[in-house]
Amino acid sequence: MSTETISVNQDIRTLRREAAEAFQMRMQDQGTYVVRLLSSPGSGKTTLLEETTKRLGKEYRVGILVGDIATNRDAERLSPLATTAQITTGGACHLELPLVEKILPQLGQSSFEFLFIEDVGNLVCPASHDLGEHLRTLVLSTTEGDDKPGKYPKAFRTSQAVVINKIDLLPYVPFSVERAMADARDVHGDIDFFPMSALSGEGVELWCDYLRLLRNKMMSKCANSIPE
């Protein structure tokens, strides 16, 4: 059996990075702050989005893209709270930008002040793909173990914030918030932490204040960059 090598003379990683930067700029220009959530399955991403949207939705237009391998159950949970579209990968373990851009029009023509992208539950593959988000947040559940940052360093190294979820279960699980934070800082020294219980609402408002602050900074930067 003969083989043939075809040279495409293109740097795929550069093309993907440029596409992500263009998407981020397009969202920024229309005033949309993009927040992407990464985590293992069952960490509470959807519950976090429910509680976040209940609060931010009172002040801002919120759109949500939900990534799953199968079913539209998460979109059904979130759609009463915000304009939501399901991205079903059919087996792929992560989202990629072309798929996000394909499904995005399903949210309608109106622009959003916050766009949340819930990636497929996985701490490996999603860390290697840039979706053009302004903020990448990793959701770590207390039921998973406090050594996850050291085991999955790229996911933490490429994120700007960590939500330590399900702190209401701390009396019942062998999880140390302090050890998890120290482990994450060994990987990424400049990372923000938000211990919370999305189920009870404890700590969620501080997370929402953080998102408000970051979007305000983005909008101020955009305003200062406009030539007079």
Rank of each mutant, 00 (worst) to 15 (best):
L37E: 05
I191H: 00
S79L: 09
V139K: 04
N216D: 11
A19I: 14
S197W: 03
H134F: 15
A184M: 04
V34P: 04
R26H: 08
W207Y: 01
R215F: 01
L107F: 12
D168N: 07
M1N: 14
A22E: 13
S7R: 11
P98Q: 11
Y210E: 05
K54W: 03
T158C: 03
G44S: 07
R77Q: 08
R26Q: 14
K45A: 03
D168A: 01
G121K: 14
G57I: 15
G31A: 01
F194I: 14
L95F: 02
F175M: 12
L199D: 03
A198C: 05
W207H: 00
I103F: 06
S128D: 08
I117S: 10
I103N: 02
A161G: 00
K148H: 02
V173M: 10
M27Q: 15
A19R: 15
K154Y: 09
R157K: 10
R55K: 09
S2I: 14
L104P: 06
K154C: 00
A22P: 01
F112E: 08
S197M: 05
K154A: 10
E18R: 12
T5E: 07
L138K: 00
G91A: 11
T3P: 03
A75V: 09
D130M: 13
A198V: 12
V66F: 04
H129K: 06
Q86E: 08
R61K: 14
S43Q: 11
D29E: 15
Q28N: 03
Q109H: 13
K148M: 05
A22R: 08
G67N: 13
P80T: 14
I164G: 02
H188V: 02
L140N: 06
G145H: 02
I226C: 06
L99Q: 15
M25R: 12
A85H: 13
Y33T: 12
A180M: 00
P174R: 13
V177L: 13
T142D: 05
P195G: 05
T143K: 14
K102L: 10
G67V: 14
D119Y: 08
M25C: 10
M181R: 02
L81P: 00
V204S: 07
L37W: 06
S2F: 15
V120D: 04
L97S: 07
E76Y: 12
S40V: 09
L15S: 05
R13T: 13
E96H: 11
E144D: 12
A223N: 13
T53N: 14
V204P: 08
L15G: 02
G67H: 15
D192I: 06
G31F: 08
T52F: 08
V124G: 01
G201E: 06
T5V: 07
G57H: 09
F112Y: 11
D183V: 05
V173Y: 13
L104F: 15
T47Q: 11
K102F: 10
S176A: 05
T89V: 13
K217M: 10
F114H: 09
E50C: 04
V204R: 04
A184S: 01
E202G: 00
L138S: 03
P98R: 04
E96Q: 11
D68P: 13
G150T: 01
R16Y: 07
F193D: 02
Q28C: 07
Y172V: 10
L135T: 11
S2N: 09
K102W: 04
L211T: 14
K102A: 09
E228H: 07
V204Q: 09
D183A: 15
D119V: 02
E113F: 01
P174C: 13
